[in-house]
Simulated scan of single mutants.
Amino acid sequence: MDPMNQALLALRSRLDRFGVILSGLCMIHCLAGLFLVGVLGLGGGVLLNPEIHHIGLILAIVIGAATIGMGALRHGHRLPLVLGLSGLALMTAAVLVGHGSAESVLTIAGVLLVACAHIVNMRRGSCSTTCDC
């Protein structure tokens, strides 16, 4: 494999890892928001700020498109793409429904699917460094 392909593969792998971390942080934010605001009545102004959700969704779309999309083009496997697009659709729906239990369920389901897509994509990427998948 030439150095350019190796560099692109390494970048995609790092971005996939970042995508998994971002998904985890999003889920922690969502669960912490439910607990702190719902149970303790604290932090509603910060944790429920719509801008946080819009920025998170934009980051998820950009990183997902860059890594999962590139991975699907490179290795031809559609599972990461289907998982990622489904997760992003759920996350978009969560932003549109507003605050509440529906938003939390949609967000958590969405970030889990996106994280799974990144993990499957990373596994496919590591395979392509050792064989022609």
Rank of each mutant, 00 (worst) to 15 (best):
residue 4 M to F: 14
residue 6 Q to R: 15
residue 6 Q to G: 13
residue 6 Q to D: 15
residue 7 A to Y: 02
residue 7 A to W: 02
residue 10 A to W: 11
residue 13 S to E: 11
residue 14 R to Y: 08
residue 17 R to L: 14
residue 20 V to A: 00
residue 20 V to K: 00
residue 21 I to G: 02
residue 21 I to L: 10
residue 21 I to F: 09
residue 22 L to Y: 03
residue 22 L to A: 11
residue 23 S to R: 03
residue 26 C to I: 10
residue 27 M to I: 15
residue 27 M to A: 15
residue 27 M to T: 11
residue 29 H to V: 07
residue 29 H to M: 15
residue 30 C to A: 15
residue 33 G to Y: 01
residue 35 F to K: 02
residue 37 V to D: 02
residue 38 G to I: 06
residue 40 L to H: 08
residue 40 L to E: 13
residue 40 L to F: 07
residue 41 G to P: 09
residue 42 L to H: 09
residue 43 G to S: 04
residue 43 G to L: 04
residue 43 G to V: 06
residue 44 G to I: 01
residue 44 G to N: 03
residue 47 L to K: 05
residue 48 L to D: 10
residue 48 L to T: 07
residue 50 P to D: 01
residue 50 P to S: 03
residue 52 I to K: 04
residue 54 H to Y: 10
residue 56 G to L: 07
residue 58 I to K: 07
residue 59 L to Q: 08
residue 59 L to W: 08
residue 62 V to D: 05
residue 62 V to H: 03
residue 63 I to F: 10
residue 63 I to V: 15
residue 64 G to V: 07
residue 65 A to S: 15
residue 65 A to K: 05
residue 67 T to P: 07
residue 69 G to I: 08
residue 69 G to F: 08
residue 70 M to Q: 11
residue 71 G to V: 01
residue 72 A to N: 04
residue 72 A to I: 01
residue 74 R to S: 08
residue 74 R to D: 03
residue 75 H to W: 05
residue 75 H to D: 06
residue 76 G to I: 01
residue 76 G to W: 00
residue 79 L to F: 03
residue 80 P to L: 01
residue 81 L to V: 02
residue 82 V to T: 06
residue 85 L to C: 12
residue 85 L to V: 14
residue 88 L to I: 12
residue 89 A to W: 02
residue 89 A to I: 10
residue 90 L to D: 11
residue 90 L to K: 09
residue 95 V to C: 15
residue 99 H to S: 12
residue 100 G to T: 02
residue 100 G to K: 03
residue 100 G to A: 01
residue 102 A to H: 07
residue 103 E to G: 04
residue 103 E to P: 04
residue 104 S to F: 09
residue 107 T to Y: 04
residue 108 I to K: 12
residue 109 A to W: 06
residue 110 G to A: 12
residue 111 V to G: 10
residue 111 V to T: 14
residue 112 L to F: 13
residue 112 L to P: 07
residue 113 L to S: 02
residue 114 V to W: 13
residue 115 A to G: 08
residue 117 A to H: 07
residue 117 A to M: 08
residue 117 A to C: 06
residue 121 N to C: 09
residue 122 M to A: 09
residue 123 R to Q: 11
residue 123 R to H: 07
residue 124 R to D: 14
residue 124 R to A: 13
residue 125 G to P: 06
residue 125 G to W: 10
residue 127 C to N: 14
residue 128 S to M: 12
residue 129 T to N: 09
residue 129 T to L: 12
residue 129 T to E: 13
residue 130 T to P: 00
residue 131 C to Y: 09
residue 133 C to D: 11
